[in-house]
Design a binder for these strands. Structure first.
Length: 341
DNA sequence: CCTCTAACCTATTCATCCC
DNA sequence: GGGATGAATAGGTTAGAGG
């Protein structure tokens, strides 16, 4: 049986939604503003954001970038002059920083979100922004500060996000997925292998860190180490066989603790070759109902399995985010399964 | 393929507020 | 003054877009 359910392009759409291309008009406006003041304050950035129809954090990013570029240019082209006039270069911003005062309510919401996910994506931050009334860029800063000042229990396991990102393993494509041509030839036998996930037993260490691109990746190939790196536990645990990609439009739920999906390859000894991969959903303390549906999957067909997953995800998401009634396929995708069973 | 750049990160420092 | 914490900066990586 050849079974193929592809991602129908939503994957790329999702992946590219992250990046916004500024048009010429926007760039001109930003450049003009930069000329006037390369260090605009929050209010100015807010005005620009409104005017250009982009978020204030994007404005901030743009200015950061351009200050860097400017500095580099100055260094390269005007080294001597800069040395001479270095002392009179006025510090761009002396007006004083305006400190945001978060209310108890706002802080509580942020802390709660932080405990669920230390690395919220843009959509999550915007949701929090709506919820709290705090600008998204402030929320971004808040999370940065919070991470810096409230390191997780295993802080320091990997020193930077880049380490996590770069250690994904070569088989992931640029979007963090395997190419759809990957085919798993096997009899899929999904056992009720939900592990008991202690916090520290998460091979991806999802409770703390976000291999950003892995947020949308839960498909493993046979014998692939998803995370190599210096964590022996990680690499050994993740050598596995998983052939399901489940993409969530929002990554919020990612860090909530893993459940484990065990797939046994055809003719392979479970004990020897069972691979574990993370489906980053579910509270570790609650055994997901999917546990049941996964039993004897080899007696079901894959579409039925995927549909079950879909339903299960919907119910879980409804539980976590009761304000959202339904997660569209764009937000909750199950795709890219090519199996020969 | 290569360059540019948006988005993101950590580490560090500055600034402000409150005790 | 010092601690807590918001804001900003520096310096880095990643990956999509476009030449």
């Amino acid at each position: 049986m050849d079974l193929s359910c592809t991602s129908n392009g939503l994957l790329e759409k999702e992946a590219r939604r992250r990046r916004i291309i500024l048009n010429q008009n926007q760039k001109d406006t930003l450049c003009a503003s930069f000329e006037k003041n390369p260090n605009p304050d929050l209010a100015t950035r807010g005005h620009l954001a409104k005017e250009l129809g982009i978020s204030e954090s994007q404005i901030m990013t743009w200015f950061q970038k351009h200050r860097k570029i400017q500095k580099q240019l100055e260094f390269e082209c005007c080294l001597e002059e800069c040395e001479v006039q270095g002392q009179d270069r006025p510090k761009a911003k002396e007006a004083g920083r305006t400190r945001t005062h978060f209310t108890r309510f706002q802080t509580d919401i942020l802390i709660e979100a932080f405990e669920k996910n230390r690395f919220p994506g843009i959509a999550t931050r915007e949701k929090l922004s709506k919820q709290t009334g705090i600008p998204e860029s402030r929320i971004h800063i808040w999370f940065q500060n919070r991470r810096a000042r409230h390191p997780g229990p295993r802080h320091g396991t990997h020193t930077t996000a880049q380490l996590s990102q770069s250690s994904q393993g070569p088989a992931l494509n640029s979007a963090g997925h395997f190419a759809p041509s990957n085919t798993l030839t096997s009899t899929c036998s999904l056992g009720p292998a939900f592990s008991p996930p202690q916090e520290s037993s998460s091979p991806l260490d999802l409770s703390r860190g976000p291999p950003r691109q892995l947020l949308r990746t839960t498909m493993l190939q046979p014998s692939q180490n998803v995370l190599g790196g210096d964590d022996a536990h990680t690499s050994s645990t993740l050598t596995g066989h998983l052939s399901t990609v489940i993409t969530l439009g929002e990554e919020d739920v990612y860090t909530q603790a893993p459940i484990w999906l065990l797939i046994q390859g055809k003719g392979q000894d479970l004990s020897e070759n069972s691979g574990l991969a993370v489906l980053p959903l579910g509270d570790s303390t609650q055994a997901p109902p999917a546990n049941q549906l996964l039993q004897d999957l080899n007696q079901k067909d894959i579409p039925a399995f995927l549909q079950c997953w879909d339903e299960w995800f919907q119910s879980m998401l409804a539980e976590w985010m009761p304000d959202k009634e339904y997660w569209s396929p764009e937000q909750l995708e199950i795709h890219s399964c090519q199996m020969k069973v």
